[in-house]
Nucleic acid binder design. Structure first.
Lengths: 356, 356
DNA sequence: CTGAAAGCGCTTACAG
DNA sequence: CTGAAAGCGCTTACAG
């Protein structure tokens, strides 16, 4: 093996020479839909194969002004929901012949360096799935004329597209479920208070409880973070007047809360405490947890995201589109069951209260 | 908000005109180390700011023949170990001023389309963290003169660089630990049998057991997959002659095995069955599992990976380098403790047998 | 330190 | 259908 510098790379001109045709002919051979005779194409293909030619996507991008790269901004991947999203995004984008440039592992504070790089690589579109820098970054990108989709979040000004689920209805559904289960004292462990998902989930929960006459909510902040959720759980659940029903703003935190409740505080779930989470992510399904959780239809969310992006890229029209999908309350073992309303659909148990 | 096509983008020539200098001067201003007077630089910077100029990385790549893009191939992200790796890779690569192009969500079979795209984008380096297509893909890339690092795996022919931990010693350590714990019947749930990690872990385990006089190992295949691991556990643990000590080839499977053992089969851990895993990944630390596990030093592994890549890119020398790091057996609650050898280091309990 | 010029590897009117 | 030519937005010898 001779160690080598990065090999020069075969160019279309070299292939052209070998095939005895013009460089344009080579280019056309590799451009779907371009006008080229079968005979010429065959000659080019043969030469290309011999030389191991592959069109240089960088050069192509420069001239077409399309990088065929979608940037995905996802600050942290600890919550398994996001790796799942990433995997599905990878799957769908490759089908559309797009590449995925990932921005992760940075502090959620500094949006400027990220933005700079997005711009430098002239990405064709952006998926923003990072909680806190959404607003600033999305406005900048939108202003630059690049399609942006906020994934699982929205901003106040709805000038930028988003894909979400009905978080408010979800929160309300959780309230109905817990009320139907006969609980008396209600708690909430919040996600990042500035995030739209948390705001909406809490608002719906509050509304739902209020309609049933429950106006007091025992409240702690978990910031969508494991350690903070544990601390919140310790604080809330070690008091004598702890709740008997607890809505945790996502499953990632709910797992931590359950561990604290059971193993540190010796509470039985759901006998002493009912817990409901959000997302229906992997660990929620593990039998150690069996979290009753509002699901978010991940595949359909990713599909909608890619569709919006592709539409905007091909039309050149950047008109904000908001896709709002429905979730379901998947019933498992972490919360007491209500007398009615739990139905079996496709082998899963769902809470569907009779319409009032 | 006027919906617009992707805005044309400001070019260096426009900035030059605005600043009253040559296009070369603009280029030099944005090339670290280029010869440019403070005065000219200031004029350029002012004009650039006014116009919102950012160098076009695509054009730069074309001429420098460096894309500053590292491809990361990671077929699936279900095992949290990999998202953790991804996050750390993102962190370190951005520090080196490299971007991360992610290939994920594809079937592990088809390596050709992936390879094609790697080549088309002229990536400067590749991190291969996908189990099954490692060998073919890595050889092709190496042949093309692109630095490749196999992450957490090796191939027979060691022409391509790799970063691993001492899996064999790890397997042996697990054996020593379980033997020291006084267990009598030993089981193994394997990962992908064709993978180097699995082969080495099993070989070490077998050796370690054999040295203590235990030559029989109850064996099932889990293929590093949750569902398959569950099935393997059901089969192995429902028999009357089930093991009392079980080494599961990674934590991702160990979690599933523990759930089956406890909740389906009613076994107590570690009273009825000791379980040891590998990786020391997130869920291993959750109190519901508390898995005793061989750790892999993720941060140092990623650091080594990036170092190898950067070295090879800057030197132009692609000489295979194999970095092999040490892990530790982190002791938690999923396995019976031996009488001696467990020590406390930095607040963690580690198994360090006295040297024989 | 500076500018004019060549050239990276393509796509795409344009003329035939 | 085909080829010659222009040009995408940069970097980098080269000459001054």
């Amino acid at each position: 093996m001779d160690s080598g510098v990065k090999k020069p790379g075969v160019t279309s001109s070299q292939v052209a020479r070998r095939a005895g045709v013009s460089q344009s002919a080579v280019s056309r051979t590799f451009t779907p839909g371009a006008s080229i005779s079968p005979k010429t194409r065959a000659k080019v293909m043969a030469a290309a194969k011999e030389l191991g030619y592959r069109p240089n996507a960088i050069a192509r991008s420069l001239i077409t002004n399309r990088s065929r790269i979608i940037a995905v901004v996802m600050a942290y991947l600890e919550n398994l929901f996001y790796p799942d999203v990433l995997e599905e995004l990878g799957r769908l984008l490759v089908k559309e012949n797009y590449r995925l440039l990932l921005f992760t592992g940075f502090m959620d504070r500094d949006s400027d360096p990220v933005f700079d790089q997005l711009m430098q690589y002239r990405v064709d579109g952006i998926v923003l799935a990072s909680t806190s820098l959404s607003s600033e970054l999305s406005e900048e990108c939108a202003a630059a004329g690049i399609p942006v989709v906020l994934f699982n979040r929205t901003t106040e000004r709805d000038a930028v597209s988003s894909v979400t689920t009905r978080n408010r209805e979800g929160g309300r559904r959780v309230a109905e479920f817990l009320v139907a289960g006969g609980h008396k004292r209600f708690g909430y462990i919040s996600g990042l208070e500035s995030s739209s998902t948390n705001r909406d989930r809490f608002a719906g929960y509050k509304e739902g409880l209020a309609e049933a006459g429950h106006t007091e909510i025992i409240y702690e902040v978990g910031n969508y973070d494991r350690a903070e959720a544990e601390a919140a759980a310790r604080k809330m659940l070690s008091k004598p007047d702890r709740p008997d029903a607890l809505f945790v703003a996502n499953d990632h935190m709910a797992v931590a809360v359950m561990d604290v409740a059971r193993h540190e505080l010796g509470l039985s779930i759901p006998e002493d405490l009912s817990i409901v989470g959000y997302d229906d992510v992997g660990p929620a399904r593990w039998t150690s947890y069996g979290i009753t959780s509002m699901s978010q239809p991940l595949k359909r969310m990713v599909e909608a995201t890619v569709n919006i992006l592709m539409d905007q890229i091909s039309s050149g029209e950047i008109e904000a589109e908001h896709r709002i999908l429905n979730g379901e309350l998947v019933v498992r073992t972490s919360a007491r069951l209500p007398k009615s309303g739990v139905v079996e659909v496709d082998g899963r148990r769902i809470f569907k209260p009779a319409k009032g």
